[in-house]
């Protein structure tokens, strides 16, 4: 990200970007659900020759549902990120402002009365930073859980390709289902990976900031 962006701007952009990526993931999950309905119809028509394919469709359906649920949870967290970014920025800015007054007022008779205020603001800013990092790390953990779901989906797409090969009459149709699953899985994986990187970058950025 460009060096000229403030931490707050970077966080707000990240929150918007993560939300957009997750919306994309949600769309893919919806497509997966539609694909499963199609796959179920095909395997039903194929009958005995696609017997091994039928439990796979149930699993794909489950994956799509889990992905959609994760997206809802993580999107909620990402939208809170914007609010936290403003609050985090505000506490840091207050501290900077009061420190400026401390410097400007160094010859003022009663400047010492500022010190307890600055100590309190510094403690609050540190708490705000810790809270913020905790929330970011929680989002990253949720993304990790989603990555695990996606990883097992990739295995299923490989199995479904094998099962498709066993179904002579419907082989081509089931291969298309397997291709779609593989492609959707890959797209979701890429998007989740990008979210993961962006949030990890923000954590590093916030942790680098000295608010003490």
């Amino acid at each position: 990200m460009p060096e000229t962006l403030t931490t707050q701007a970077t966080i707000l952009i990240t929150a918007a970007s993560v939300t957009a990526e997750l919306n994309g993931v949600n769309e893919i999950a919806k497509d997966m659900t539609l694909g499963v309905m199609n796959a179920k119809t095909i395997s039903h028509r194929a009958g005995e020759s696609a017997k091994g394919f039928q439990p796979i469709t149930d699993y794909i359906e489950q994956v799509a549902r889990e992905v959609a649920q994760s997206v809802v949870r993580i999107s909620g967290g990402a939208s809170v990120l914007s609010r936290l970014a403003v609050s985090y920025h505000h506490s840091g800015k207050l501290l900077t402002l009061y420190r400026r007054v401390l410097k400007d007022a160094e010859d003022a008779t009663h400047v010492a009365s500022l010190i307890p205020v600055i100590t309190m603001l510094s403690q609050e800013a540190q708490k705000e930073q810790e809270h913020f990092v905790r929330d970011l790390e929680s989002l990253v953990r949720q993304l990790d859980a989603m990555k695990n779901t996606i990883r097992s989906s990739k295995v299923i797409s490989t199995i479904s390709r094998v099962e498709a090969a066993n179904s002579d009459a419907f082989r081509k149709n089931l291969e298309v289902v397997a291709d779609d699953l593989e492609s959707s899985t890959e797209k979701i994986r890429e998007r989740v990976q990008r979210c993961h990187h962006q949030l990890s970058d923000v954590i590093a950025l916030v942790q680098r900031e000295d608010v003490s």
Partner: peptide, 16 residues
């Protein structure tokens, strides 16, 4: 004007 005002006030009174 907050920073300037607070600086000026501290020449006369303690915050409390």
């Amino acid at each position: 004007v907050f920073a300037s005002m607070l600086t000026a006030v501290l020449h006369h009174v303690r915050l409390e």
